[in-house]
Amino acid sequence: MEVNHINAGYESENGYISVLKDVSLTVNRDIILGIAGESGSGKSTLAAVLYNSFRYPGTIRSGEVIFDGKNLLKMKPNELRKLRGTEISFIPQAAMNALNPVKKIRLQFYDMMIAHNIKENDFDSKISSSLELVRLQENVLDNFPHELSGGMRQRVVIAMSLLLSPKFIILDEPTTGLDVMVEHDILLDIKKIQRTLGLTIVFISHDLPILFGISDAIVMMYGGEIVESGDYEDLLRNPAHPYTYQLLKSIPLIGTKIDSSMIMKGIAIDFNHIPHGCYFHPRCNFAVPKCSDIHPELKQTDGKTHLYRCNRYPEWSRNAKLEAIGT
């Protein structure tokens, strides 16, 4: 999948609010691409645009999403409908409420297969192989959604999204509202399924430890732009953007007491008042005066795949290392 120059935002009473600004990225086959950022960084907007499920007041001003040589954003509704669930799939943010409350799980699976004209003889074999993937017993099929626990409902949703073996899946914070153990279990399963079936996954989350744990490549978003992207190890060991660095530093480790020095200063960007120059400079520990004037372009580091959007790389990085040694 290739995403080219997306500009998208929301219509409001005070006019158009631009959120995504010239976002381009390539999702390679058979990997998990993690998209990270704080709340309000535009990552969920990006997820909706990728799936062409961005609805009014959301508007896409320009750009294209190329999947299998076709632009998803220009597709006819019925063509797009046939693609959904079979080629591409989506696991939503509020997966707990994604199931119809008044219908048994089995019938919801059937509905999905009726929608895609699957032969009735194949219904049960498809359901059981899909449930096996997410390690659910077949007796959940005769339950209503409210009779299942949050984790089980989440697994049902994943099973439903994988039912017709799509190759490309977008997960928008799929584990919101689950406790850590269940979350961990589900993420391990997702990773395993991805490896065995050779899926391409776009994984969107604000939870950095999880994201770095599961992804092969990472895209960092800030203020509706990509501020850094590359291999997960590059970002983890050599962050090229202070935002990545400061976010990683703010992750509390078990055993350390949280103190205010760990927390990133400032609040997430307000799309009505976007700062001049680098969007991140008001919150950056390494900002210099030029940062408030010059809006940096995406640049490459020595490694080909590692992109960043900073005026002061690699100077700030050396300062940071010295600082770390000093303390």
Partner: peptide, 16 residues
């Protein structure tokens, strides 16, 4: 609601 947008995202037919 979430379950309607999820059905749409799974490619359910309009009448469904």
């Amino acid at each position: 609601s979430d379950f309607i947008s999820y059905s749409e995202n799974l490619g359910f037919k309009k009448y469904q």
